[in-house]
Amino acid sequence: MSTFELSAQPREQTMMRETEAVAAVAAGAAGTFAIEATDVNIFYGQFRAVKDVSLQIQKNKITALIGPSGCGKSTMLRAFNRMNDLVSTARIAGEVLFHGRNLYAREVDPVEVRRKIGMVFQKPNPFPKSIYENVLWGAKINGFKGKADDLVEQSLRQAALWDEVKDKLKQSGLSLSGGQQQRLCIARTIATRPEIILMDEPCSALDPIATLKIEDLMRELVEKYTIIIVTHNMQQAARVSDYTAFFNMEQDRAGYLVEYDDTKKIFTNPKDQRTEDYVTGRFG
């Protein structure tokens, strides 16, 4: 059995157990999926944003969530690391399993969940601190005690940003360009050593060149991490992802999962007519 621990308890302890936990996972003790969502319904007050979604995310793959605006794909993404908790009216029903544990079980601490499942946002949001501090901040609050310089360099290298910023680590993260900022945000997420990285339209605020860089980066990162990305951009989903989940919404605007399959299949030979209409640009 996995000893992986998500409940609220002192950080240092969790930190120490991390290696054992990862080892346990690597041994395949906790099943084959990174995340398994079953019959998930998400409500904002009376409004149902997501309806009856079941979805299994493969480890060390990139899974893209696509669909028209307002179809609940971002909401679904945020359900994977309990970011929806920050909205006071949000409510969830169903199960989201991570290492065989329901993330929404009573004893689970959302803060610990987010440490294991990091997030990169639509708009680059580096902290108004130096580049160095930006990378280190998340690791530090999680009890990182090792060599800070090494962690910063390693994380920035993984985020393919090191060469561009190594001479100006003390400068504000806000002094960087949009694409660099987004890679900085990825670097600081990596620095906390998550297992899964959620990306909520990470390139929507970037120009095409910066977008390509991030996409390349994602392909590199997926060797170590599981990545789930929400995107509006179907080409991006086609280029970068291994699996694609197509969401649509009903008359009452409740989002639901239409089809989930290999990316290739979704874009070349979808089973569902609505998927085909969407990927061929007939609506959305």
Binding site: G118, F121, N125, F127, W137, G138, I141, T189
Partner: peptide, 17 residues
Amino acid sequence: PRSLREGAYGLGATKLE
């Protein structure tokens, strides 16, 4: 901006942090 808070929460920060 809310995005800064989300960034922090996304890294596993507590409310107080």
